[in-house]
């Protein structure tokens, strides 16, 4: 993960194979990145990994680090992780500057939650969006449901959650989840173009506009942590995580 600030534009580049899974290390990097927001007037987040933007939480780490712990300790560690990732996403969500996720390929689970924390999602035709958490007996844990519900209709929210299916860029555009669709490989350029335009505007007006146009959902995301933890500690979820991690089939997310 890399970031650079130049002429007011902050770029966060996700660059961890296979698909920018959000591990403890990635969380630490995101926490280190946050102070850079203070000097920025626009943010673009993109991925240099071919598979996509981000495949979500690192489930392998979640399972392997917790499997030998007592229940209380396991829940405490997951709670700490959730509180920290919520702080990161809440900070991006509320930053008084335009924030843009440039998405290609896989944008699943925690990856979609990262994108949803941004003000705009620009995607190319290869992008797919999904919340597959219910397959594991969980709900999205990084603020996904409140933020998805903020942006699109409840009918599609429930469809995506209850089926775990992935949505292509065209449908996501029709649904209002993403605001621009571009040809494959052109997301970063499109996002930088939008950011460059936003940089021309008065910063105070932009901040006021954002505060007015983008309702924050912190109360709901706090509730979500408690619901997630209640679900997480059940034996069925631990079994599902084990199956997912040990699955060497070609489509583990459909198992």
């Amino acid at each position: 993960m890399n970031w650079r600030l130049a002429n007011g534009l902050l770029e966060l580049e996700l660059a961890t194979r296979p698909c920018n899974e959000i591990s403890t290390k990635a969380l630490e990097q995101l926490e280190s990145f946050l102070p850079s927001l203070k000097g920025a007037r626009a943010l673009v987040i993109h991925s240099t990994v071919e598979a996509g933007f981000c495949a979500g939480a690192d489930l392998r780490e979640l399972y392997t680090r917790g499997r030998n712990l007592e229940s209380d300790e396991r829940v405490a560690r997951v709670r700490d992780f959730l509180m920290r990732i919520h702080r990161v996403l809440d900070t991006i969500d509320a930053a008084p500057i335009p924030t843009i996720a440039a998405v290609h390929g896989v944008c699943f689970g925690g990856g979609l939650e990262l994108a949803l924390a941004c003000d705009m999602i620009v995607a190319d035709q290869t992008a797919r969006f999904a919340f597959p958490e219910l397959r594991l007996g969980l709900i999205p844990g990084f603020g996904g449901i409140p933020r998805l519900r903020r942006d699109i209709s409840n009918a599609l929210v429930r469809d995506l959650l209850f089926t775990g299916r992935s949505l292509n860029a065209r449908r996501a555009h029709e649904a209002g989840l993403i605001s621009q669709v571009v040809k494959p490989g052109a997301t970063r350029r499109a996002a930088l173009g939008a950011a460059a335009q936003a940089l021309k505007f008065d910063t105070r007006a932009v901040a006021a506009c954002k505060a007015f146009a983008k309702p924050l959902v912190r109360d709901e995301t706090r509730q979500e942590i408690e619901v997630f933890l209640e679900l997480f500690e059940r034996e069925a979820v631990q079994d599902a995580l084990k199956r997912f991690v040990e699955n060497d089939g070609p489509m583990p997310y459909l198992a």
């Binding site: 598979a51 896989v106 089926t163 775990g164 292509n168």
Partner: peptide
């Protein structure tokens, strides 16, 4: 010789070509 991520690429290609929505669960 494809993996799960490449299956998603194929799914995207097929949905675009046939102008159809093909939910992942239909591929189970």
């Amino acid at each position: 010789g494809i993996d799960s991520l490449q299956v998603l690429e194929l799914l995207t290609k097929l949905e675009a070509h046939f102008s159809v929505e093909l939910p992942d669960y239909e591929l189970q």
